[in-house]
Amino acid sequence: MDSVTVSMEVVQWVNRNFPKPRVDRDWLQGCYEWAITLDGVRPNSQELFDIIRLQILKSHLSESLDPTDGLPKDIGHDNTNITLSGVPTLVEITSISEVGSSAFQLDQVRKAREDRIQAGGFDEYDEGDEDADLEVEGEGPLPNYPRSMLAFVLSDGTTQFQAMEYKPLPQLSLVQTPLGFKLQLKAVRIVCGVANLEPDNVILLGGKSDLNQHRDYYLRQNLRERMGLPKEPTPEFEDVEGEIDKNSGAGAPGPPSPPPQAL
């Protein structure tokens, strides 16, 4: 089958909604060719735009974005102090942690939740209200993680850097926000290599990637590192094609350390 050229209307829509980094042209071509084969999807229709948007939000940005059009390579360096300018920049969350509470306290909650979940036979990441304690028969409600300040590792698909809540982002949480969640940064201040996030300078888009399948492992390793414990052996993860990937997520830096407590 001959390839079908992506229409100018689609290219303009993608550039308008995801201006930076540019969506990779080969990735867009493949997505477009696949999408227009679906029942009820017409060229340049809203259904087509919705499908392309969803596929971007579900993708690894390293695969869907142009690696030459991202953030400065030194954005995460300790001596970087800048404010992002220009059009919004698409990034994804590759690590999330609560840094306003001790790692020991978080690990105790994690273990308690894990025990209750195994006893109850359900998935704590199912959609729902995280603040409404999930009831396990005979055991009472699941304990909630404390919520003070979230820290993240963000990536534009090529460059990783740290970020923290400068002001609370109540839509995000340690339990319900999946790895691979997409957001756009606009006029974000980078202080000592750390992005200061607040509601006015981020656009929350949603989505996730297959990195989220292993979030329990990454959370445990982050907490063990903060408690000064050795990390567990890296398991052999299977990627979406069924191939073994020993390094998935292993190179991601951990979230920044908690800020000093005010006296």
Score class of each variant (00 low, 15 high):
M1D: 12
S3C: 01
T5E: 08
V6N: 00
V10P: 04
V11H: 14
R16K: 10
R16L: 13
R16N: 07
N17K: 05
N17G: 08
V23N: 01
D26K: 15
T37H: 10
T37M: 05
G40I: 13
V41E: 06
V41I: 15
D50Q: 12
D50K: 03
I51Y: 00
L54I: 00
Q55I: 03
Q55P: 02
Q55C: 14
L57W: 01
H60A: 05
S64N: 15
L65M: 14
P67E: 09
P67R: 09
P67K: 04
L71F: 07
I75A: 04
G76L: 09
H77D: 05
D78N: 10
I82S: 11
L84F: 07
L84G: 11
S85Q: 08
S85V: 02
G86T: 00
V87S: 02
E92D: 10
I93S: 03
I96Q: 02
I96D: 00
G100I: 04
F104A: 06
Q105P: 00
D107I: 13
Q108A: 05
R113F: 03
R116T: 13
Q118P: 11
F122D: 15
Y125T: 10
D129V: 13
D129Y: 09
E130T: 07
D131I: 06
D131F: 12
E137N: 15
E137F: 14
G140S: 11
G140W: 08
P143W: 03
N144V: 04
S148A: 07
S155F: 02
Q162S: 14
Q162V: 02
Y166G: 10
K167R: 12
K167Q: 02
P170V: 08
Q171K: 12
V175Q: 08
Q176E: 00
K186P: 02
V191F: 07
V194E: 14
D200G: 11
D200N: 09
N201H: 03
L204I: 15
L204K: 14
K208H: 13
L211S: 09
Q213Y: 11
Y217G: 03
Q221P: 08
L223E: 04
E225H: 12
R226E: 09
K231T: 12
P233F: 00
P233M: 03
P235W: 09
D239T: 02
E241A: 05
I244G: 03
N247K: 14
A250V: 15
A252T: 11
P255R: 05
P256A: 04
P256D: 02
S257P: 03
S257D: 10
S257K: 08
P258L: 08
Q261L: 10
A262H: 12
L263G: 06
